[in-house]
Design a binder for these strands. Structure first.
Lengths: 336, 336
DNA sequence: ATGAAAGCGCTAACAC
DNA sequence: GTGTTAGCGCTTTCAT
């Protein structure tokens, strides 16, 4: 009987059917106190009979609080979202949100339209909260987000400023781990290919690399900068081979770049890991299948999503969480 | 001056500031006719001064139409969304939606809660439209979606029934292409590893395989069923090698499975493509980097997303689009 | 061309 | 416990 109802069933109809006032019905729906057992039951029955589903829009308008949170990816190209990384993050977020009434909106704030939308979101309280990823520190939206009165959690700590609330992977620690591993296996002329230095992850991984080398008293001058992409890795590795022909290992700040770099090294006639050891970062799905299988630093991506959502929920309910750094770990495979 | 406004700026405030009635202001905002040039200008100025942004919730309530569309992934495990495939789809969808006022909500309808949410979405008009992916034909939600009075477009044609509106990749054609390529290169004892046969893509790819073999008058009995996953591919390949030791080629219905299969073939001491040629499906990012690089069938994933969104927009605005099949193409690499 | 008034479906004060 | 009332911010007849 609930099937045929094309029209929205209203609370008034439920109330009428149950023979109670609208407020009583409302109280039952939101299981608030001050309703007699009998009336409560009557309302519940009416709800079932009529197939009542509260109108989220009306509720949002009345309560002045939105029923959705937003995951916004702020970046120059929508293409970055194609990185499997985000899909994993979304799975984590979704898992956490699943236990609430909140919906998840996705905003690829890539075009100027998208950015405007994000800006409006931040200004008006159309969303219960916002999760922001791929934010560059110098992006004005970052500041705006920080000042906004809608709760905002950053995913990844942008370079240049530390947001109040964020969850990030331990990029620096992971890079140290990787570099120390290289050192421990006897390498001494260790290079690095960095990611974009205007991104938090790029800077942090570079810093970790430097630290490890400093502690060991090794030379940290063999560095080439790239942009996290495979092609970038290719170019950077060529540069490295060119300028620092003596290198015997390289810490590459992303697996995608490592793939490109590996190719170049092999084409240059050097063996991996014999002549040159390589360690990547991210543990992408393909990492174990390239030849040789890539040693890399894995980060708990789904947890990242889960924790971002959790932190946002905390913020929404008025708590004051502290930033979170999630551990990374080294996955040893053949390339080092 | 627009910065400090913590409170929502209302239309009334704009109207007052502009010295006009609320209706006039409203007309300007929605650029409706019947407003004098002077008043229009005044309102526009007030909007700019105050930093007015219409309240989407209130608007939705008044107009009875939602400001968001939903992408729902219906599947037993949230994990499927981690497939990079969806990220690409989302990029496509987002690109199309970017030109509209519609927001994108993401619903991983995996838990029973998630499914309930999807169901309610379909029953109540809380969303302007819904895009449904990974639907199994026997899922009751599929029927419900088909009857729902909110516009629904399917991504991928579920097995068992053909939805009114869908966009799909040419899975059957792609599989034929792949198999024909194998035949053309002289293989005669061709096997296949299928995906889940309860999914549209799984069935269609298998059918394409059969067709190609039938046309060539070749035996199509060498088949093992798997579930699209790498582990599934591994197991299926073992089975195949066991039961049909004479095979000289295999069409694998997904790259993930192909990766597993390739491994098994090599471990069995057979060379690829010398002894056994392999063709995959999907052209995942890693396909070109495995050894040997994987020949595979590529589908236009972003286009899939774009077209789904376009079709949904058409539906929302009252048109009656026709289903779309997007072409696939063979990407020849080393494994065949 | 213009403004007044009546909702959209819900919640929340407030009286009883 | 219970019901009445007044909004939330917007759109939309309907008179003027």
């Amino acid at each position: 009987m609930t099937d045929l109802s094309r029209r929205q069933v209203t609370l008034d109809e439920v109330a009428e059917r149950a023979g109670v006032s609208r407020s009583a019905a409302s109280r039952v729906i939101n299981n608030a106190p001050h309703v007699s057992k009998a009336k409560r039951a009557a309302v519940l029955r009416a709800v079932a009979d009529l197939g009542y589903v509260p109108n989220a829009t009306a509720r949002a308008l009345a309560t002045q609080q939105a029923g959705a949170v937003v995951l916004a990816i702020s970046s120059d190209s929508a293409q970055v979202f194609a990185d499997p990384f985000f899909a994993e993050v979304v799975v984590g977020i979704s898992a956490t949100l699943d236990e609430t009434e909140l919906e998840l909106m996705l905003l690829l704030a890539t075009s100027s339209r998208g950015r405007t939308r994000l800006e409006q979101l931040l200004r008006t309280r159309q969303a219960a909260g916002v999760m922001l990823m791929s934010m560059h520190g110098d992006d004005p939206l970052a500041r705006l987000a920080e000042q906004s009165d809608v709760p905002v959690v950053f995913g990844g700590c942008p370079i240049g400023f530390e947001p109040r609330y964020y969850v990030d992977a331990d990029n620096r620690g992971g890079a140290r781990l990787a570099t120390e591993h290289l050192i421990a296996s006897g390498r001494t002329r260790i290079a690095t290919i960095t990611g974009r230095m205007d991104e938090g992850a790029g800077g942090a991984r570079y810093k970790g690399f430097q630290e490890a080398l400093a502690v060991a008293g090794l030379d940290a001058s063999r560095v080439a900068h790239a942009d996290f992409s495979e092609d970038g890795g290719t170019a950077a590795m060529r540069e490295l081979l060119d300028k620092h022909a003596d290198l015997d290992a390289v810490f590459v700040a992303s697996d995608q770049m490592a793939v490109g770099a590996l190719q170049v090294v092999k084409e240059a006639g050097r063996s991996v890991p014999g002549d040159v050891a390589i360690v990547g970062f991210n543990d992408i799905a393909g990492a174990r299948h390239i030849d040789p299988p890539l040693t890399t630093v894995a980060q708990p991506i789904q947890s990242l999503g889960r924790e971002m959502a959790r932190m946002l929920l905390a913020l929404i309910s008025g708590d004051t969480p502290t930033p979170l750094i999630l551990p990374t770990r080294l996955v040893r495979r053949g390339s080092s």
